[in-house]
Design a protein around this nucleic acid. Structure first.
Length: 482
RNA sequence: GGCCCCAUGGUCAAGCGGUUAAGACACCGGCCUUUCACGCCGGUAACAGGGGUUCGAAUCCCCUUGGGGUCACCA
């Protein structure tokens, strides 16, 4: 049978980093097995679901390079792929469960349930639904209905049974049905709840493998019961452990950037994020950790998925991103960088440089970038007026510095020397000054940039050109003399 | 709290009864270098604890401890 997997986010927020990994694992498994990957929206939470989030999730998936064969946006044989558009389907199945006695209407109000919960809590017992409406007579039901009470539909959980989840990453996990209270499958407004809708959709869509986060493991027995009641063979399950923050708690907003879009905004490359995420909970056989999507597909296997939770390590992501940044050509970087330059407010300045000098600039800073948004920081050095920091000030006060700066100012080639020319110029300067190289370069750097560290001098000179350098040298000279 | 999952360096992890217990990130040191990075070389650092099983346990079983998840008219 052809493998069919799915990613079914609820559009109640942007695509979470954990969701992205679930999507990735599903994608990898589908591609590896020559199967199909479905994306659908579970938007039964009317309060929190928003179309904007659907759009954002789709864009995030596309940005990551995870394409799907069927589902939202692309369509397919099991349309629609949005749960609120499938309400009739759920109603039919609910009727079926009602008719076969697997489910019953429940007329308890929220207030009553709340009271029951508090009472149980007060007695030190576990809060759960006691089954008050389980055995209402047809008469009683008719009366309640006549009173205008809109019932929910509850699933009647079998007593004394054991349900075993056969999990591809965890092995067999057993749950006793007595620990599960009768749960709602249809809300009073006619919207199905998650556990019900997911079962109906997965079965109707022919999903063969459910790969999802571990937080769903405890829900699985409920789903198994539903499969049983519906007379459907359940799919295979694979529960992947959670991604934790530094404090070992489930990743949440408190931990900083948790959505894919935030990483995109910061200038992480999709290849890097995908590669990093893949290694969180999965390890390929070899020692190579930098893998293309294609290589990941080849190497992917569910039995190499780890059972233990993984802490999100920003340091490693940063390193990973640098690796991918290094793999980019200057031409590619020039384009990738543009939106971030714009964001940092340096678009005009970059345009004024012209393509050749922009390229030089990219070459000069590329090794410093952890992510694309860092460009703003480095551009500051180039585009802002000279501001001398403490360390640079100390250098400028050393003896002989004034002579070096003046010599440089007077000999500067121009108007815009090529990189090689700048290098030659600097060497000749050292020779003429008859000083150790460092005694020439450090003061120059301090005077030109106002800092003691930064991009290489030849780049600075070639990018700024003679006039800008002279201007800066004069400012620094004025400062050093004054 | 009940139920369930998990447990190898600071982090990600390999390991699936016999290894000097890989590798990567981070960290530290050295080299390179006109600075800072980059790069290269090297180093510190782990089987949570206790019982078993076995000739032999990181690997299998049990308990303890620790962490996490789940118990909604959220998904």
């Amino acid at each position: 049978m052809k493998v069919r997997v799915r990613f079914a986010p609820s559009p109640t927020g942007p695509l979470h980093i954990g969701g992205a990994r679930s999507a990735l694992f599903n994608f990898l498994y589908a591609r590896k097995m020559g199967g199909e990957f479905i994306v659908r929206f579970e938007d039964t939470d009317l309060e929190r679901s928003r179309p904007e989030f659907e759009q954002e999730i789709i864009e995030s998936l596309e940005w990551l390079g995870l394409s799907w064969d069927e589902g939202v946006k692309v369509g397919g044989p099991h349309e629609p792929y949005r749960q609120t558009e499938r309400l009739d389907t759920y109603r039919e199945r609910a009727e079926q469960l009602l008719a076969t006695g697997w489910a019953y209407p429940c007329f308890c109000t929220e207030a009553e349930l709340e009271e029951e919960r508090n009472e149980l809590l007060r007695r030190g017992e576990m809060p759960r639904y006691l089954g008050r409406c389980r055995h209402l007579s047809p008469e009683e039901r008719r009366v309640k209905l006549a009173d205008g009470i809109k019932p929910t539909i509850r699933f009647q959980v079998p007593r004394g049974r054991v349900y075993v989840v056969e999990d591809l990453v965890r092995g067999n996990v057993a749950f006793e049905s007595d620990n599960v209270g009768d749960f709602i499958i249809m809300k009073s407004d006619g919207i199905p709840t998650y556990n019900f809708a997911v079962v109906v959709d997965d079965s109707l869509m022919g999903v063969t493998h459910v790969i999802r986060a571990e937080e769903h493991l405890s829900n699985t027995p409920r789903q198994l019961m539903l499969y049983e009641a519906l007379g459907i063979t359940p799919p295979q399950f694979a529960h992947v452990s959670l991604i934790l923050g530094q404090d070992r708690q489930k990743m949440s907003k408190r931990h900083g950037a948790t959505s894919v879009i935030q990483y995109r905004q910061r200038g992480y490359l999709p290849e890097a994020l995908v590669n990093f995420l893949a290694l969180l909970g999965w390890a390929p056989e070899g020692e190579e950790e930098i893998l293309s999507l294609e290589e990941m597909i080849q190497a992917f296997s569910l039995d190499r998925v780890a059972k233990n939770p993984a802490v999100f390590d920003m340091d490693k992501l940063n390193w990973m991103n640098q690796q991918y940044l290094k793999g980019k050509s200057v031409t590619e970087l020039k384009e990738l960088l543009r939106p971030y330059i714009e964001e940092a407010g340096y678009s005009q300045w970059i345009t004024s440089l012209g393509e050749a000098r922009y390229e030089l600039l990219v070459e000069a800073v590329r090794d410093y970038l952890v992510c694309l948004a860092d460009i703003g920081e480095y551009l500051g050095v180039f585009a802002s007026d000279l501001a001398i920091d403490v360390e640079a000030a100390e250098i400028l006060q050393e003896s002989g510095v004034i002579q070096v700066l003046e010599l440089c100012r007077d000999r500067l080639p121009g108007p815009f020397p090529e990189l090689e020319e700048s290098k030659k110029f600097l060497k000749s300067l050292v020779k003429e000054a008859k000083l150790p190289a460092k005694k020439v370069y450090m003061p120059l750097r301090a005077a030109l940039t106002g800092h003691t560290r930064g991009p290489e001098l030849p780049y600075l000179i070639s990018i700024w050109g003679r006039e800008e350098c002279r201007k800066r040298l004069n400012v620094a000279l004025g400062w050093a003399k004054g």
